[in-house]
């Protein structure tokens, strides 16, 4: 085999072993209380649709080391909060041909956006499509503000997603999987159980069959997205769920799907629904 290939193998493992800090395993019984007051549900009974798969659902927070866990206990320590502040400025900034900011229509973000994150992705009736929060933000920008769309995983977009998500922090994830959303949900479920790439692995292989196990230096979680956008210590920025999906599929030596693609929107709906009942945690902190 060519040298280049041998040294590039299994980046998921290669990357993990760069962080040579011995994998201090998380205290899986620790509870997450943010700022001494917001009690987070990081472990609860699985929603009914998972009855044949898992009994309990667990936030990724439970699988992280003590040092990483602690960064999420207080907003002063949470490196993701800087980006929320930046998005707050943007919330009030007029952009586009209509002379409007987000605040022109939605006023105070804390009141108008409370509970929104918990139900996304969700079906949009007039558009007849399942929309992620990012799609909805871009729809407002384009059609109400007359402003440019933001790139799906750009820093500006993920920060805005974090600001809106923060207003639901502590509320249970509650995405609808029936009615008009059902076909997208089924499609997402199909993807979740499909094996991809030359390593021939599905999301379920790692996150349903093996959560709690070490894969090299990585402690496998259930791959929940209740904490997204996530601040990762590894790349020191906020990350969208679609970025994570892309990374995980790439690591199976597969051709990935693109952020914002129909496939990833469906997958986001399905993965979000696996976390129905966990608290919205964004912005969470992971390694």
């Amino acid at each position: 085999m060519k040298k280049g290939m041998a040294t590039r193998t299994l980046t998921w493992v290669a990357l993990a072993s760069v962080a040579f800090a011995a994998p201090a395993l998380a205290d899986e019984d620790a509870e997450l209380v943010v700022n001494g007051e917001i009690e987070m549900v990081t472990k609860t009974a699985a929603p009914a649709h998972l009855a044949d798969s898992v009994d309990e659902i667990l936030s990724g927070w439970r699988f992280r080391s003590d040092e990483t866990q602690v960064l999420q206990l207080d907003d002063f320590d949470n490196p993701g909060m800087v980006f929320v502040d930046q998005a707050m400025d943007r919330w009030n900034t007029v952009e586009g041909s209509e002379g409007k900011s987000c605040a022109s229509c939605h006023e105070d973000v804390e009141t108008s956006m409370k509970g929104v994150r918990a139900t996304y992705p969700k079906w949009n009736d007039p558009a007849e499509e399942v929309r992620t929060l990012v799609m909805q933000i871009n729809d407002c920008r384009e059609n109400r503000m007359g402003a440019e769309k933001l790139k799906y995983t750009s820093g500006d977009m993920v920060s805005m997603e974090a600001l809106i998500s923060l207003q639901s922090r502590g509320m249970p994830v509650d995405v609808a999987i029936d009615g008009p959303a059902q076909s997208a949900w089924e499609e997402g479920k199909e993807l979740y159980y499909t094996r991809f790439g030359q390593l021939d692995l599905s999301c379920a292989n790692c996150h349903e069959d093996n959560f709690g196990n070490m894969i090299r230096a990585d402690h496998l979680s259930q791959g929940q997205i209740n904490g997204f956008p996530v601040y990762r210590l590894k790349n020191t920025k906020l990350n969208t769920a679609h970025d994570r999906f892309k990374g995980c599929i790439r690591d199976t030596r597969a051709e990935t799907f693109n952020p914002g693609s129909k496939e990833f929107v469906a997958l986001e709906l399905y993965v979000a629904s696996r976390g129905n009942g966990l608290s919205v945690e964004a912005p969470s902190v992971r390694n």
Partner: peptide, 28 residues
């Protein structure tokens, strides 16, 4: 779950190693 280490066909969306792009030509 164990990958097949000496097999070159029958994969779903095989990639060009870890680039996330589609594989070109025959897989090694």
């Amino acid at each position: 779950m164990m990958p097949a280490f000496y097999k070159t066909d029958g994969f779903n969306r095989p990639g060009d190693a870890y680039t996330g792009k589609a594989a070109e030509g025959e897989l090694a």
